[in-house]
Write a protein that binds this DNA or RNA. Structure first.
Lengths: 115, 115
DNA sequence: GATATATATTCCCATATAGGAATATATAAA
DNA sequence: TTTATATATTCCTATATGGGAATATATATC
């Protein structure tokens, strides 16, 4: 078998460093492809292709505007990563805020349901 | 050029789903290779190879114990991910309304997970 | 020393990239 | 309608897998 597809899920998609750079830009503000190209200085097809992957896993959404396409981030889609990270927080010391506690409990309950 | 190496950094390493499963086990308690094989039911070389990648990016550490090797997680190494996630937190802040919304999403996502 | 156990490593191959180059498509402007 | 602009897509190739099968290595036990 071959490697896991980059579009398999959000984790796979952000494994590529360039895609994280695009995300870091889009989290600041929505941008067109050429605005992104300006910012990161990569060939336009490279940007478009990486955006394509991000679009497939729904990290970004495309909004047509004339001959421009505005790309916008969909932060909710990155929640699975944040949730997955919760399992390590107990090791990092410090206090967890109430929201985190609550979410941890929810998560634990959810996991047991499938056992 | 080819794909980014899985050992390029922590993000790339956790892109592979099986490696996340191993991490999820090791965060509960340190284990030997065979204990992991027992748990996940994959061929031993598969487990060893994935552990090799995790070891290279330092997510896990190996402790020799006779002919056993105990693998232990190094949670600090995952902090870059947590830090990277900070940039999205402003979108899913801590109000109850948003928490409700979030919990609804979890439920909805759970149902679609296996499609 | 011989053997069993635990784990890593090597060899193999099908597969999916990431990026360069060129081109296609869509839409606006002239 | 012709042209310019914005973006996506196709074709290509080198590369790095992930996993199966077989084997090597290390250590414990007899």
């Amino acid at each position: 078998m071959a490697r896991t597809k980059t579009t398999y899920d959000v984790f796979s998609a952000i494994g590529e460093p360039k895609r994280r750079v695009l995300i870091e830009q889009l989290v600041l503000k929505e941008m067109t492809v050429n605005e992104l190209v300006e910012k990161v200085q990569w060939p336009q097809p490279v940007v478009s292709k990486h955006l394509g992957v991000l679009k497939q896993v729904k990290i970004v959404r495309e909004k047509k505007n004339g001959r421009h396409r505005v790309y916008r981030i969909q932060p909710e889609e990155l929640r699975p990563i944040q949730e997955w990270m919760h399992q390590f927080e107990k090791y990092w010391g410090g206090t967890l805020d109430q929201l985190d506690h609550y979410l941890n409990n929810i998560q634990a309950r959810g996991k047991n349901e499938h056992e």
